[in-house]
Each structure stands twice: as structure tokens, then as C-alpha cells.
Design a protein around this nucleic acid. Structure first.
Length: 564
RNA sequence: GCCCCCGUAGCUCAGUGGAUAGAGCGCAGGCCUCCGAAGCCUGAAGCAGCGGUUCGAGUCCGCUCGGGGGUACCA
């Protein structure tokens, strides 16, 4: 496994600081945060630290003096070529060119493992994403969680964690009851009965489809039941239909879940009731008029006004008793206590932020460290189709199906588009742009770079040039150095994503790397019969770019085509 | 009212508390006898406002204004 250059530099700085501190008798520098950043301006070298400025107060010396003292102690041997103090006390480092070029060979040698680490080794992390209500087909409203969760899972797994991809199926909710009733109404209509959907029913045509399937399979078998009974009978079939749809569509997106976990499973085996009992013992339950409330000072603090009574855990008046908040508390408890999940990372839509607060309050009461629950909240996607915003829920019957989008633009484009923005930012998905196979489409821009590299190797093969015995030290051009630095950045980026969950940075990086490559390509001939040694070296460089590009695309789940 | 997210170029958005804030689209102009022009190069243009913390703030804190979401029997 390659040690990222940044880590090597960080170690060098830390050592230098320790030696300088010892020599000068500085106190309080032991646990100092030796930050290493990449300066914006190339004039400031490859890496820099501002540790001298941070330490000025503790050490009670001017930053420049501290910086000079540390800089003098940094070993200027590969990978470090030059150390310089600049500005108000920055220590800048320039990497050794020969060492840097040699990295090209190291990167190619790590191949498929380039960027892999063991940072999260030994951790079991569950990533729950999409988890749409099983009351109909997946729509674009559910779409963002898929690429986000899957790419995050890829990156975290690549950092050594045991990852479990989880789809939580809430098959016992009030919505499911309404869904069953809606199917029953459509079923009755198929027999010519004059009956209208209830106001809270599901309007979508798929409900008719499900009813028709039931009629086809079971004929009039359910005709004589009452509407409620029919609803109960049809709900499981309707849920199966929804799960099958979700499996097919997420499959089209290239996502494979490890578990499709049903809410009903822990209701049936008594775990839910047991959890409620635990809450009761903890003294956070109050019961009034058949309604069971969850009451803690933290919950009370979030009340809207005095008239509100509290969070409803369950309501015995409903049939079956509706479980509401209780099911989710039990579900999370189950993951931590019974399923061995160390960290549960939920990728949820922005509308669940209140729900998140509830879980954060509930977990400690069950003796679970709330930091084991983390949520990536993503803002909504504004779907622009023919200039019109489409973001309408399923119940109304007007919606844009995720599958239709996938069929129209493909999984690659869908995934890339969904990952182009930070989860905190709303995302605009321009349908017309996504369909375009043109230079306006950033996915093709990146894929084109990869295809171009493949084409270079084809050309080289035709002319009988390969990279055997290449001398990478011939890669002396500034654009070549820049490319190597960019390729080298990937492992550092992956670490950042593991720490901050900003998985969208991979698309940003892919575009940056592709752009640098395109620029290099224009000005530097790779396959050149007149200069075979240089051609060999450049084939190596281009191969390293390909490794990084392919790796990046693989992690976000986008194909890296050899031609297009 | 309260809670969460956002406000950066004409538009859509990047930007782990560091030095001169970036990209794409759009606009203006240029580049294929030469490895893929789905490409490249040049140009104009920006941190909503006011305070605070800090050696240093687009980034952290507070308030104001503006936009999105939620507000607990949907989960």
C-alpha cells in the first residue's frame, strides 16, 4: 500500500517540530496539530504547513522564528527537495522531482488497489440508503440517496471497513395500510363496482396494475371480503410488488444491497414490544388515553408550544396499534445491539431532519452512544424536464419515475449527476442536458478522457511502441509534473471523503483529472516514432492517469469505456 | 414561532480556518496535413448585509435579509 505523499510530509514536519522544540526548549508543542495543506499557488510549493503561526502563542516566539527553526530541522531528502519559509510563517515544501516521477511506476504497480487503505479496518459499518416507503415505484424523489449511499459505501469499504448495504422496508406503517386499501378499491373497480379512492389513497396507475395482477392470479377469491379485510390481504402483495420494483430499479442503477430488512420482522418476533418495555423501565414513557408518549427533557425542549403533549410512541386506539416512533427506535436498537453494527450511516432526505433529532435523543436512553448513528441528510433534487420543475410525491399520482430517467439517460449519467453536488446543496438535474451526448455533458467529458487514453494505447500498439523499459525520469515537462501530482492526490482525497463523507468530491476530482489530461494531451505527443524513449515514459504516465481515473469512476459506479 | 439546509461570476455549482477564491454552461474570439475536436487555448465577471472570535474568515459564532425543507399520529 502506497503511503500518500501528504502523510510523508506530515511526518517530516512533526519530526522537525519535535527536534526544534527539544533544542529550543519549547513547551506545549507535543500534541500540536501539524496541518499539511496543498497551497493554492504553485509558487508556494507542493505542501505547506501553518503550524508555526498556530504555535506562536504557546511558544511565545514570533511565527517566523518558529518557522525558521522547524524548517532547519526538516530533512531535505526524498521525497522532500526543498523547504522554504514564506509569508507570515508558512513552511513550504517542494517534492523531489525524481522521487515524484518514480511514483508513476509505484502507482501503476498498485493498480486496482491504488487508493486502498486500512484506515477503517475492523469497523463494521451499515449504510442504509433509499429505503423508500414500499407503497409504489421508486421516483426521482428517492433517487439521490442511491448513488450517494452506494458511492459512500464503496469508498468506506475501500478504506477497509466491513460494509453492509441496507434497504429498510417499512412494511407495517399507516401508509402501507392506506396502500392496501387503495389496491382494494382498484380491485373492486375491476369487477365493475362503483367506488372511489379515499382522499388519502394512492392515485398512481401502478395501483391499478397491482390490482389487475391480483385479479389475474386470484380471480374473485377476495370479492366477498370487506374493504378493510381486502386491504389487509392485499397489502403484503402490494409491498412485494414495491420491493420487486425497488430491487429492479436499484439494480439498474448498479446497486446491490446486502439486506432488504423488513420492519415487520422485529414486530412479529416481539423485539418491538421488548424495546418499548426497556423504554418504560428507563422512565421515559407516559400513557394517557391509550396513547403512549415518549417523554424526556430533550424532547420537551423541541416542542412547538405548550399545547403539544409529546412524541407518540404508539396509539392503542388504532388497529393494529400504530407504532410510529417506536418502530424506528427499535429498528436502530436492533442494528446496534443484535446485528453487530458499529456505526450506522443513514443517507436520508432533508425531510427527515426532525426524525434524526428524535433518534439522537432516543439512543442514549437505550445505552447506545449516539455518535454511532450518523446521518447524511441530502437536499432535494430539482428535476427540470422541458424547463419545468418536477418534484411531486407519489400519492398525488403525478411523479417522474426513477426508472424512466434511467432508461432515458442511463445509469452512468444518473449516478454522475447525482454526485456532482454536496449533499447539503440542492441539486438541479437538467433532463435535457443529461440526455445529450455532447461536450456539455460532464459525464462524457470524463469518459472521453478514459477512452482517449485507451485509444493512445491502441495507436501505440499499432506502431509497435510499448512502455517496456521506460525511463520515467524523462517526464520533465511542467504539465507532466502537474499530472503526476493530480494522480497522486487520489488517496489523499479518499481519506478526506472517509472523514467528511463528501463523496461528491470524486466527481469534482474526475473532472479535474480529465481536464488536466486533455490539456496535457493537446500539447504533448505521447506516441512519437521520432522519440521512442519519451514515448515509453509518457505511456507510463498516461497509464497512471488511467489507473486513477478508472479507480475514481469505479468508486462512483460509472463505467470507464475504452471507446465511445 | 421553533428546528435543519442553503445564499460564491449572467446561470448551475466547487472551495479540510490560511497566501492571488475555481470549474462548467452562456457570451466574445482563436486552434484539426499531427496519438479520438465528446477536445484545447484566450477574454470579461463574484464571496447577500452587519457585527464578533482569530495572527488570519467565503469557511467558525450572533443578528438581519432572501430561498428550500420540516414542525412530531407519514416515517
Amino acid at each position: 500500500m502506497l503511503t500518500p505523499a501528504r502523510d510523508l510530509v506530515a511526518t517530516a514536519f512533526a519530526d522537525a517540530l519535535a527536534r526544534a522544540a527539544k533544542e529550543r526548549g519549547w513547551n506545549g508543542t507535543e500534541g500540536a496539530d501539524v496541518d499539511v495543506e496543498v497551497p493554492k499557488s504553485p509558487a508556494h510549493g507542493d505542501y505547506a504547513t501553518s503550524v508555526a503561526m498556530r504555535l506562536a502563542k504557546t511558544v511565545r516566539r514570533p511565527p517566523r522564528e518558529i518557522a525558521d527553526a522547524i524548517a532547519a530541522k526538516v530533512d531535505t531528502k526524498p521525497p522532500i527537495a526543498k523547504v522554504e519559509v514564506a509569508g507570515g510563517g508558512f513552511i513550504n515544501v517542494r517534492l523531489d522531482d525524481a522521487w515524484l516521477r518514480e511514483q508513476v511506476n509505484a502507482i501503476i504497480a498498485s493498480g486496482e488497489d491504488y487508493g486502498r487503505s486500512e484506515r477503517l479496518k475492523g469497523q463494521k459499518i451499515q449504510i442504509e440508503f433509499v429505503s423508500a416507503n414500499p407503497t409504489g415505484p421508486l421516483t426521482v424523489a428517492n433517487a439521490r440517496g442511491g448513488p450517494l449511499g452506494d458511492a459512500l459505501a464503496n469508498v468506506i469499504a475501500f478504506a477497509g471497513a466491513a460494509v453492509q448495504r441496507e434497504y429498510y422496508v417499512e412494511d407495517s406503517s399507516t401508509q402501507v395500510k392506506r396502500f392496501g386499501i387503495s389496491v382494494a378499491v382498484r380491485y373492486r373497480q375491476l369487477f365493475g363496482e362503483e367506488i372511489e379512492l379515499p382522499a388519502d389513497g394512492y392515485q398512481g396507475d401502478y395501483v391499478k396494475e397491482i390490482a389487475a395482477q391480483i385479479k389475474e392470479r386470484h380471480g374473485a377469491r377476495y370479492r366477498d371480503l370487506g374493504l378493510e379485510e381486502q386491504g389487509k390481504a392485499f397489502a403484503p402483495m402490494a409491498i412485494d410488488w414495491s420491493i420487486a420494483d425497488a430491487q429492479r430499479v436499484t439494480g439498474k442503477l448498479g446497486i446491490r444491497y446486502d439486506a432488504w430488512f423488513k420492519q415487520s420482522s422485529f414486530i412479529e418476533n416481539g423485539y418491538l414490544d421488548e424495546t418499548i418495555e426497556v423504554l418504560r423501565k428507563r422512565g421515559v414513557i407516559a400513557e394517557r388515553d391509550g396513547v403512549v408518549f415518549f417523554e424526556t427533557p430533550e424532547a420537551a425542549a423541541l416542542r412547538r408550544d405548550e399545547t403539544e403533549e409529546g412524541w407518540v410512541l404508539l396509539d392503542k386506539a388504532d388497529d393494529p396499534p400504530a407504532k410510529y416512533l417506536a418502530t424506528d427506535i427499535a429498528y436502530h436498537r436492533l442494528c446496534f445491539e443484535k446485528r453487530g453494527v458499529g456505526l450506522k450511516l443513514n443517507v436520508w432526505g432533508a425531510n427527515t431532519q426532525y426524525h434524526l433529532q428524535q433518534m439522537k435523543i432516543a439512543m442514549p436512553i437505550l445505552g447506545i452512544d449516539p455518535s454511532r448513528l450518523e446521518v447524511v441528510l441530502y437536499q432535494y433534487v430539482h428535476f427540470i424536464k422541458e424547463g419545468v420543475l418536477t418534484r411531486i410525491g407519489r400519492r398525488t399520482g403525478q411523479y417522474l419515475l426513477l426508472e424512466d430517467v434511467l432508461d432515458a439517460v442511463g445509469a452512468d449519467v444518473t449516478r454522475f449527476f447525482m454526485l456532482q453536488r454536496g449533499a447539503d446543496s440542492p441539486l438541479e438535474f437538467d433532463f435535457e442536458l443529461a440526455v445529450q451526448q455532447s461536450n456539455d455533458n460532464p459525464v462524457y467529458y470524463v469518459q472521453y478522457a478514459h477512452a482517449r487514453i485507451a485509444s493512445i494505447f491502441r495507436t501505440a500498439g499499432e506502431r509497435g511502441i510499448n512502455a517496456d523499459g521506460a525511463d520515467v525520469q524523462l517526464l520533465a515537462a511542467p504539465a507532466e509534473r502537474e499530472l503526476i501530482r493530480l494522480v497522486q492526490k487520489l488517496p489523499e482525497l479518499l481519506r478526506e471523503i472517509v472523514e467528511h463523507r463528501g463523496v461528491h468530491l470524486l466527481t469534482v476530482y474526475a473532472l479535474e483529472l480529465a481536464g488536466a489530461f486533455h490539456g496535457f494531451y493537446r500539447d504533448h505527443r505521447v506516441v512519437d516514432d521520432a522519440n521512442v524513449p519519451l514515448s515509453k515514459a509518457r505511456l507510463r504516465l498516461v497509464r497512471a492517469v488511467q489507473v486513477a481515473l478508472r479507480q475514481t469512476l469505479r468508486l462512483i459506479g460509472v463505467n470507464a469505456p475504452d471507446s465511445m
